[in-house]
Design a protein around this nucleic acid. Structure first.
Length: 502
RNA sequence: GGCCCCGUCGUCUAGUGGCCUAGGACUCUGGCUUCUCAAGCCAGCUACGCGGGUUCGAAUCCCGUCGGGGCUACCA
């Protein structure tokens, strides 16, 4: 076994794509659950960068830990990306020249490289058991030295080897780190240096022969000719290990990818956003009626800005404007209120047909309609009056429910408001004038009620119309009253008003 | 503990030595809009973590400090 030369490793990277290699960016999640806000922010930046540069966007599944990654989650990840419009050029389903794109299907490749590393002396077998390692780590902590593998099995006597083998111990494959340090240029953070004293020999292959992330990620990025690695900040300190694998692979420095570590998206509790702290899965937002373009727009503004005051950015504009240089190095807090505001803006930008298409599934799911053409006609005529008052698509159901219920009932907590003397007078008067109304359109209804209630009874509009609103829609919050009554129709409107009179 | 990253309104951000008595957006508060809720419009509150230095001049550069976060696995 050859000892590695003891010299500091100098590794310089150009901060932006000045290389003439075509840009290839990958998004490589390890789907151990539904993709969450942080994952998607990374995917979005990866995608935007690829599109901005006219490069390729590669989607790779890191499923080397088959105990935590399930097929279900892999499928869900693909669905989420597609729903968001982050289409990939290479990856699952579409294939590509450097596939397969599931690491679990590339095991022979990793086996080949790990055998090579072993033969070259870059890596070595380590027979230390988990218990032994744990004990030594504890001792290191107690002695206040940097914890990490101590290199015990770098050299191993034949006696010990025979002993371990007779005990049936299965070795892991460890990468040998040299002395010195690794410096690389992160496009977002600048030069970052790690002293190898704090980068212990790391495991490439488990005792059972399966590869670890540390091996697979580096091998794949090289083999798939990835030029830019934009990923979460949590992986920053694992970069020297990736670079060590590149060296062992014999890759020349000019072919190393450029790294850019994106800042975290944090939860309200100021901790890294994770499954623990609440509503982080993209599926959760989808179910609540958030638009994919709104999610992308909002997420793009977390850690990046176009540079001017604009906040409403389309996907197209994002691809035009996105550069790594404008990505922040500091973490951002996720703010649901702002997402809702942007979602509302995006809803208001939708055409009527588009809005109808998007809201229909929610109305059906909530049992408001079954989806007949007649129902959709009604929905379509009602959408213009609620488009500016909903922040999420899921809100349409409660707004339009009153138009479809077969057995109408006033909300229990609203009922007392129309039972007092004044309200009853309003309803009786309304019933009288509306019975005689010739044209049942919102303008006529408005005029009739205004004249009867405001001028006739001398009431404040909000008081008078409020009672009618509750009687007709069942709630004090509703779309505009007169339009609602026009949509509801004469008979049902009058029926409800009459039904509210005691 | 060690290593690494980070630090402008409550939140997201603009800002790369003078354009900053720090701009925008979201939130919040008040008002307008005589049908609610929204939307829209107007106004207001509120920030350069702290301490030194460099400079004629610092949010911007340097040092220190404090604070937050990540990593420290046969997870990724």
């Amino acid at each position: 076994m050859r000892e590695l030369a003891h010299f500091p490793i100098r590794y310089r990277l150009v901060p932006t794509n000045t290389s003439d290699r075509p840009v290839r960016v990958r998004f490589a999640p390890s789907p151990t659950g539904d993709l969450h806000v942080g994952n998607i922010r990374t995917a979005l930046f990866d995608w935007a960068y690829a599109r901005h540069t006219g490069g390729q966007f590669i989607f790779r599944i890191e499923d080397t830990d088959r105990e935590r990654v399930t097929d279900e989650y892999i499928k869900a990840a693909q669905d989420t990306l597609k729903w968001l419009g982050l289409n990939w050029d290479e990856g699952p389903e579409v294939g590509g020249p450097y596939g397969p794109y599931l690491q679990s299907e590339r095991l022979d490749i990793y086996a080949e490289w790990s055998a090579k590393f072993l033969a070259q002396g870059d890596a070595y077998h380590c027979y230390c058991s988990s218990e032994e390692l744990e004990a030594r780590r504890e001792a290191q902590k107690a002695a206040n030295v940097a914890p990490g593998y101590d290199g015990k099995c770098r050299t191993i006597s034949s006696d010990d080897l025979a002993k371990y083998k007779s005990e049936g111990r299965l070795p892991v494959l460890r990468m040998r780190m040299s002395d010195g340090s690794t410096t690389f240029t992160d496009s977002i953070r600048g030069d970052v240096t790690f002293d190898h004293n704090f980068v212990p020999d790391f495991v490439l292959v488990r005792g059972d022969g399966s590869p670890l992330y540390t091996l697979a990620v580096a091998v794949d990025d090289i083999l798939m000719k990835v030029t830019h690695v934009l990923r979460g900040e949590d992986l920053l300190s694992s970069t020297p290990r990736q670079i060590r694998v590149y060296q062992a692979m014999g890759v020349s420095e000019s072919d190393y990818p450029t790294f850019a570590h994106l800042p975290f998206v944090m939860g309200q509790d100021n901790a890294k956003l994770s499954k623990r702290n609440g509503e982080v899965s993209i599926a959760w937002y989808r179910e609540r009626g958030f638009l994919p373009e709104a999610i992308c727009n909002y997420l793009a503004l977390l850690g990046w800005s176009p540079g001017d005051d604009r906040e409403n950015v389309t996907m197209k504009e994002l691809t035009e404007l996105f550069t790594v240089e404008r990505v922040h190095s500091s973490p951002a807090r996720f703010d649901m209120k702002k997402l809702e505001a942007i979602n509302g803006d995006k809803i208001r930008e939708l055409t009527l047909d588009e809005l109808l298409k998007r809201t229909t599934p929610f109305l059906i799911k909530d049992g408001v309609i079954t989806g007949t053409p007649e129902e959709l006609d009604v929905v379509k005529s009602a959408l213009p009056i609620i488009q500016e008052r909903i922040a999420t698509l899921a809100k349409v159901s409660q707004m339009l429910k009153f138009l479809f219920v077969s057995k109408f009932e006033v909300d229990a907590e609203e009922l007392p408001k129309i039972k007092d003397e004044q309200a009853q007078a309003v309803l009786k008067k309304s019933n009288d004038v509306l019975q005689k109304l010739e044209n049942w359109d919102h303008e006529s209804i408005h005029m009739a009620l205004k004249s009867a209630l405001i001028e006739g009874l001398g009431l404040k509009p909000r008081v008078a119309f409020g009672a009618v609103r509750i009687a007709v829609t069942g709630s004090h919050i509703s779309p505009p009253l007169f339009e609602s009554m026009e949509l509801l129709g004469r008979s049902r409107s009058l029926e409800r008003i009459a039904g509210s009179i005691s």
